[in-house]
Design a protein around this nucleic acid. Structure first.
Lengths: 240, 240
DNA sequence: ATAATCTAGTTGTCTATACCACTTAAAAAA
DNA sequence: TTTTTTAAGTGGTATAGACAACTAGATTAT
């Protein structure tokens, strides 16, 4: 298991070893793992080296330590609160899901007063309207409508929006997204939303409106999303 | 700076020390901090102890390490949501409303496995269960159930909970609340909740579960809230 | 002047050990 | 039999030291 002659650090090998055992179900959620001293004795390594491996797994959410009792497999799968602004795709990947998108509509419309103000463009100016079903593991997770200024992102094409717009903005256009404001509210699914999301009409949904901004303060996009409540919870950590 | 006789661990003191320097601007983004050996020599502590402090700051995103070069203040701004973590009362006041509370229940119960784990107490240990209707401008806004460990806050009394528990914890007990994780999900009101909140059964509600922690990392409370969706939206700013 | 090598400094990994603080089971006392 | 004390086991903190791997500047060789 642990090869002391491998170029890989010993703590890393142990970390991967334990992680595999958890992922393969050899160690179940809530189950106590061997003590630090046992690992150290079994593999004839220092306890401090064991601690480093376990520290990392604790930080990553795989394990939970209880002083005096032992170390346990975390009962909640690595559902870590988001510590920063993420794209939908990044969010899904963080949850261990495969993100996807199905484009419903993509066209250019004139900005109404509300959107013009939010995107800081002239009323009536051209803006993209992008409607997509956001998928997670090939199943509908959210219905999303995004608005972006045409003058900010000229020549946006269909192939650019089949996946992550954040990815496109940051990696292809070299723009830096700095922050976003988000408003979350609870609602119930209307007929059209229910059909798209494959849930019952009247089922609870989480509405999220997001306004994101570039690092020069310029608005990037306005996004209105309807998430299925049965498959999505918004998780966040906030400092006092 | 570092008090070896303090009950606070040395690594923790150093960690807070460095973090303060960053937050006060004494250490700028991109700037190199003193080396591990320098800290160790300055404070006459072991280098491994220094490493533990710096490990934590690296994990929290304050610092970045470059092998062979040194350790640098992270350039990415630390997430500081505009609002930060607020108590219910602070939230309402920020919205221009007058906060209030009506206590429904206040008693001591044994901690079940889930709450015991979240509050880091022994299963079956005494914890307070506090159920309140939270008011805004004298109208029901949320139904809230809070759990606090009796060993952490001995002798909590009814008059302490008629308003803000955060206020009591911080100003009367002198404890410092550091951060909280929050999970938000959409749901619909069940019969009991609907009656308490004066809304229709089946009306949308926003469920918020909050786990807050003191600055020594110890859990303070677990709070489960049901907010009326028609009167409450959750608003937040997040940095990329 | 340029390239190669050396040196000093950094973080990264690992060892061995000691003691503290907590938990729980076992043993001793009532 | 019940209660109290002790012992064994857990993670938590800290020390001192050694060597590896990398970085960048200084020195030496071409």
């Amino acid at each position: 298991m642990i090869n002391k002659h491998s170029p890989l650090p010993i703590y890393y090998q142990l970390e991967q070893n334990i992680k595999e055992m958890i992922e393969k179900g050899e160690l179940k959620p809530g189950e106590m793992i061997p003590s630090e001293r046992e690992w150290a004795e079994t593999y004839e390594i220092s306890r401090m080296t064991v601690r480093q491996a376990i520290n990392n797994l604790v930080n990553d959410g795989y394990l939970v330590r209880k002083r005096g009792k032992g170390t346990f497999v975390a009962t909640k799968k690595i559902e870590q609160p988001l510590k920063g602004l993420t794209s939908f795709s990044e969010d899904m990947r963080a949850r261990g899901m495969e993100p996807g998108a199905k484009v419903l509509d993509f066209h250019i419309i004139p900005a109404n007063p509300s959107l013009a103000e939010q995107l800081d463009v002239r009323e009536g100016a051209d803006i993209y309207e992008i409607r997509r079903i956001r998928l997670a593991d090939q199943l509908p997770m959210a219905l999303e409508t995004a608005y972006i200024s045409c003058s900010l992102v000229p020549n946006l094409a269909a192939e650019n929006i089949s996946s992550s717009i954040y990815d496109f903005i940051e990696n292809k256009l070299g723009l830096t997204i700095r922050f976003a404001t988000q408003v979350l509210e609870a609602s119930v699914a209307r007929k059209m939303e229910a059909e798209m999301l494959q849930i019952k009409e009247g089922a609870p949904v989480l509405l999220i409106q997001r306004n994101s901004y570039l690092d020069n303060g310029q608005p990037l996009e306005v996004v209105k999303s309807v998430y299925r409540a049965d498959r999505y919870k918004f998780m966040i950590e906030m400092e006092r």
